[in-house]
């Protein structure tokens, strides 16, 4: 391929390539600047994006919007490589520790107890929020009362059948009416990926307090920090008043 001699001469005159405008530096600094502006303008941008994606999600047949940031819905977090599956036959929930009557419940036993249904927002400490999510299950206070908590007790520790996760609440927090052993979410039995067949639900706190795959409730003297709390998260995880966040409270 040949080019006209005149053009060749013209481009040759641009040699060497070290004298032009420093556009590269400007692009780099501009990108940094845009990043900083993005951080500061995020509240406005995020609201717009959520509104747009919320609308788009309703007409999105293949669920691409679910993969976009702030696309709505839950995200799956597990701290172990795999979690055994439990069904109505194999699931057990034990209540022990500083109680007069240690008890083990099957799923049918829990379903036979009075159920409480609540509709609140769910707020994750990483930022995502799922508005108006129905949760339904047995009040934790009911299970504690049935077991007979001793006067020396001050806290409740929760363990999970994933083998690693744990959580804890003070006894006062655990007795709140908006703390459930949840069996149903969004008016369906809780599936495995969402922590089924039964998970903790602590409505006023960040969602890491709502331990998935709940298998043990142990009444203790003092609060023992749970899995993420030993890794720097707040033990008292009130939405909007902990973990350095200012989200709107969920209750």
């Amino acid at each position: 391929m040949t080019r006209p001699q005149g053009e060749m001469a013209q481009v040759d005159s641009e040699q060497p390539d070290t004298r032009g405008a420093p556009v590269g530096r400007r692009v780099l600094l501009g990108t940094l600047g845009l990043g900083a502006v993005g951080v500061l303008a995020a509240p406005v941008l995020q609201r717009g994006m959520e509104a747009f994606l919320g609308g788009a999600a309703e007409v999105d047949p293949i669920g691409v919007t679910g993969l976009l940031p702030n696309g709505g819905g839950f995200r799956y977090y597990s701290v172990t490589s795999s979690v055994p599956r439990k069904d109505a036959d194999s699931y057990r929930l034990t209540v022990d520790g500083l109680v007069d009557r240690p008890t083990t419940y099957g799923l049918a036993d829990l379903r036979a107890l009075p159920q409480t249904r609540m509709v609140r927002d769910i707020q994750c400490v990483t930022g995502w929020r799922v508005p108006g999510t129905p949760m339904e299950g047995v009040r934790l206070s009911e299970l504690l009362d049935a077991a007979g908590v001793r006067s020396s007790a001050g806290a409740v520790r929760f363990t999970c059948f994933d083998g690693a996760y744990s959580e804890s609440l003070t006894l006062e927090q655990a007795r709140r009416a908006d703390v459930l052993v949840a069996l149903r979410m969004q008016d369906e039995d809780i599936g495995h990926n969402h922590g089924g067949p039964a998970r903790l639900y602590v409505a006023p706190m960040y969602f890491y307090k709502s331990a998935k795959w709940l298998s043990g409730i142990t009444v203790t003297k003092d609060v023992r920090p749970g899995y993420w709390e030993r890794r720097g998260y707040d033990v008292d995880a009130w939405v909007g008043r902990s973990n350095g966040r200012d989200d709107e409270p969920t209750t």
């Binding site: 951080v39 995020a42 509240p43 940031p69 930022g127 966040r245």
Partner: peptide, 17 residues
């Protein structure tokens, strides 16, 4: 500050994409 952190998450997510 708290406000910045929410913003940082937002920028980190979208810029990652």
């Amino acid at each position: 500050p708290l406000m910045w952190r929410t913003g940082a998450t937002f920028v980190h997510d979208w810029l990652a994409l």
